[in-house]
Simulated scan of single mutants.
Amino acid sequence: MNQELRQHIEKIVSLTDEEFDFVLSHFNQKRFLKHQFLIQEGDTVDNDFFIINGLLKASHRNEENKEHILQFATEGSWITDPQAYHNQTKATLNIQCLEDGNSLFITLDNKEKLCNSLQKMDSFFRKKTTKEYILLQRRILCLISNNAKNRYEDLLKQYPSLIQRVPKTMIASYLGVSRETLSRLATS
């Protein structure tokens, strides 16, 4: 499990064995079960989760109780409610497990201690956050600029195995289309 985190970090910065042991000392492990919520709207958000295996979704329910999926987190990705985590406010998102899995997580306090102690990790988290910001911008532009077919094709490129792992209603929610529209897209 620890090797997955090390490989992920070393895509951005290289670490000695001693440095990685120090990094790892700031993380804890959590197993999760399908249907479990790691974060629910209104919760205090203490952790940022690195997914070793499994699948999670970040979503928000509007006043009509319609779910809007913002993110899927698969192996090798991170998930939290960033606003609540970084600002230490109440969650506005729900993070739910779609499959059983394992994660490593870090508290904000431990992340700050780690970044203050090891410049390489400050660089890692800064570069990782920038990459996520760019992906978010790309997703927003895709939602406002592309038609449903292009959004579907973009999803297939970003998450090639997701179609087999997630119900079509969740895919439709992520794309901002109806289930019927998604069915037409999948057969065209």
Rank of each mutant, 00 (worst) to 15 (best):
N102V: 03
L118E: 07
N102A: 07
M121V: 02
N110A: 11
F125N: 01
F105K: 03
D122N: 11
L118G: 06
L118M: 15
T129F: 12
L114R: 02
K111V: 02
F105P: 02
C115F: 01
F105D: 02
K111I: 06
E112Y: 12
N116E: 12
L108C: 01
K120W: 10
L118N: 11
L114H: 01
T129K: 05
R126M: 07
T130C: 03
K111Q: 15
S103P: 07
T129H: 13
F124W: 09
K113Y: 00
I106H: 04
K120M: 08
T129E: 15
M121R: 02
K128A: 08
S117T: 11
T129Q: 10
T129S: 14
L108T: 02
K127Y: 13
L118K: 10
L118Q: 06
L114P: 02
R126T: 07
D109M: 05
K128F: 13
K120S: 14
F105N: 10
L114K: 00
D122H: 09
L108F: 11
E112N: 15
L108Q: 08
S123A: 11
R126L: 09
F124I: 09
L108N: 06
S117N: 14
S117L: 07
D122T: 00
K113A: 06
K131L: 13
M121G: 03
M121D: 03
Q119L: 13
L104Q: 06
L104A: 08
I106Y: 08
N110L: 07
E112V: 11
S123K: 13
K113T: 07
K113C: 02
F105G: 00
L104F: 09
K113P: 00
K127H: 10
T130G: 05
K131H: 14
L108Y: 13
K127L: 15
K113F: 03
N102H: 10
Q119H: 12
Q119C: 04
L114S: 02
K128Y: 14
E112W: 08
D122R: 04
E112L: 14
S103G: 06
S117D: 13
S123M: 12
K113V: 03
T130P: 00
